[in-house]
Design a protein around this nucleic acid. Structure first.
Length: 567
RNA sequence: UGGGAUGUAGUGUAAUGGUAACACUGCAGAUUCUGGUUCUGCCUUUAGGGGUUCGAAUCCCUUCAUCCCAGCCA
């Protein structure tokens, strides 16, 4: 099995990044033939599914080609960054199964070095301290179609810039007063080259360096130099940084840098009916639309973990999506396919009734109980069996009974015989209703010779229902999750993604009836509630005294689809 | 209207001058102690127009469409 899987993986055609690597390796462009990549999140929020693609690319490619992948926190904007995020990010990467080993870095590790290089830049007349205000900088920058013009400070004497930069560092100037800028080209058609800011003043406390610094380096300056310091060979990032590559190359070509990493860009992952913007996800958290970053409806790694997704299914998903440079929108059904495929192979099967309807088996002895053998997973020969209690009164799903069934319905209805999974055949004899006609309970008779779920004469029944014994049933809270948004691209029509929120993204069932086995399960264990979907005990609220389960994903359901089509 | 990129079934991704394919979705059907799984089949594709070539998704020209860039964010 394992070999087949690996072989299958090997057969996958190479993506363009793999080709670049193989080409570099084949032409001895990589020192010692060891490629070094890096995954560089900014700790300003939780990781989401989109990051899984980047993690898979950076860690996965390093793994595949016998290289290394660094984890580096791009922590250059203390106003947005927090220790909580730094910790959560590490937990999420580990959960996905990747390991950075000893290679944990922070851009802030290089602040001293970065500062020294900046000083040298000034000395070489490649950077200057500018006193233009933010607004003035914008005016001087020009527009997309017109060139910018030089700042009056562009020719500030080197000594003066040196002195001012030092004063900036010492905290002698307020935020916004000065900025260190690279001297490149104010007329460049590429906006990123119109004397980009290198350092700005911020009196914010940094999660790692505290109040040691009050000037912080910008991304375009920090990232390439950090890559160079760490001897990164291949710096993979998303498409929106394509325009920054010239700035990247500018930074890695300055005299103090002796290693030249190369940047390559790939398309970020977009999935229909959700969104990957950290800023918007933060808004959902802050506005309490969801309960937190790990709300099971969130596309965050911590959210989908709590929801019950397996790391394997997520890696499989991103690998199926592939890598290219086309801006794409992957259908969420592929993600659902991947979880189902993985969970089908490993989920423990159990019986749980979400919408109980009582069934009385009138010819079954009043006080009798018995234990019946149930398979734990028909897809896994190694998964053994468990015992499930059965008695005269059971619950089945309300939708498994209809007094007047439509054509094609082969569940329980008056006169019809069905199988109770792992138990007996039963035939509906009576429907008990209240004065208003609501169905209170259903009466059936059972065939004692069909114990275990197959009749002695091998006669066939079309329907099989799951069930839970009334007197043995445990109460459970079940949270049914659905898409957070109703449109493929939230906000694409109205301009406000909040307009597209799905009001029914969460349905809480307080009184689900589940088999006793569920008292023993813990969060992290993959479950299939027979015929209902895949579930996992909630990592925050579940305990053996207070059962709480989250629905990961439904089972595929061709019947209700057919019913819907019939009208 | 400056610059940078990208256009292959509904959605992703292959095919790198030589028969357009794989997965997901959708639709049929078979199997089934989960209307699940599994299996089989079907539908639909090279943005448009020119050119080069025996032969073009691939090379050239051109048109069109989409995305990114005017943070002291990353």
């Amino acid at each position: 099995m394992a070999e087949e899987f690996i072989e299958k993986k090997e057969e996958r055609p190479l993506n363009f990044l793999e080709r670049i690597i193989e080409d570099d390796l084949a032409n001895n462009r990589v020192t010692d033939n060891i490629i070094i990549t890096r995954f560089p999140p900014e700790p300003n929020g939780y990781l989401h599914i989109g990051h899984i693609k980047s993690i898979w690319i950076n860690f996965g490619l390093a793994q595949k080609y016998g290289g290394k992948c660094h984890l580096r926190f791009d922590d250059t904007n203390p106003e947005k960054e927090e220790m909580e995020y730094i910790e959560a990010i590490q937990e999420d990467i580990k959960w996905l199964g990747y390991d950075w080993g000893d290679y944990l870095y922070h851009a802030s590790d290089y602040y001293e070095q970065l500062h020294q290089i900046a000083v040298n830049l000034i000395k070489r007349d490649l950077a200057y301290v500018d006193s233009l205000s933010g607004e003035e900088v914008r005016e001087y920058r020009g527009t997309l179609t017109t060139p910018g013009k030089n700042s009056p400070d562009r020719n500030r004497p080197i000594n003066e810039s040196l002195k001012l930069f030092e004063e900036m560092r010492q905290g002698k100037h307020p935020e916004g007063k000065y900025v260190l800028r690279a001297k490149i080209d104010m007329a460049s058609p590429n906006m990123n080259l119109r004397d980009p800011a290198l350092y700005r003043i911020k009196f914010a406390s940094h999660p790692r360096t505290g109040d040691k610094w009050c000037i912080y380096p910008m991304y375009d300056y920090t990232h390439p130099i950090s890559d160079a310091i760490e001897n990164i060979t291949h710096s993979f990032c998303t498409l929106e940084f394509e325009d920054h590559r010239p700035a990247y190359d500018w930074a890695t070509s300055i005299d103090d840098i002796d290693h030249t990493p190369k940047q390559y860009e790939f398309a970020r992952l977009n999935i229909s009916y959700t969104m990957m913007s950290k800023r918007r996800l933060l808004q959902l958290v802050n506005s309490k639309v969801v309960t937190g970053w790990d709300d099971p409806r969130m596309p965050t790694i911590s959210g989908i973990r709590r929801r019950g997704y397996s790391p394997e299914s997520l890696i499989d998903f991103v690998s199926r999506v592939g890598v290219a440079k086309v801006e794409s929108l992957v259908d969420h059904s592929l993600l659902e396919f991947c979880v189902r495929e993985d969970l089908n192979k490993r989920a423990q099967r159990v019986m749980a009734i979400l919408d109980p309807l009582k069934v009385v088996i009138t010819n079954y002895p009043e006080n009798k109980s018995e234990y019946l053998v149930a398979e734990n997973n028909p897809e896994d020969p190694a998964a053994s069996t468990r015992e499930v209690p059965f008695s005269r009164e059971i619950y089945i799903e309300r939708e498994d009974f209809m007094e007047n069934p439509p054509k094609g319905y082969h569940r329980l209805y008056p006169g019809n015989e069905i199988r109770l999974k792992h138990a007996y055949y039963i035939t509906c004899t009576d429907v008990i209703k209240d004065e208003e006609g609501n169905i209170l309970e259903v009466h059936c008779t059972y065939d004692p010779l069909s114990k275990g779920g197959m009749s002695s004469d091998m006669r066939r029944v079309r329907g099989t229902s799951h069930w839970v014994s009334v007197k043995h049933a445990l109460n459970a809270e079940v949270r049914l999750y659905d898409k957070l948004f109703l449109t493929e691209v939230p906000g694409s029509e109205t301009g406000n993604y909040l307009d597209d929120l799905n009001p029914d993204s969460l349905t809480v069932i307080k009184e689900a009836k589940v088999e006793p086995f569920l008292k023993e399960v813990k969060s992290g264990q993959y479950l299939q509630f027979l015929r209902n979907g895949y579930f996992m005990a909630d990592s925050r609220d579940h305990s053996s005294d207070n059962l709480v389960f989250n629905r990961t994903v439904t089972l595929r359901d061709s019947w209700s689809k057919k019913v819907a089509k019939m009208g």
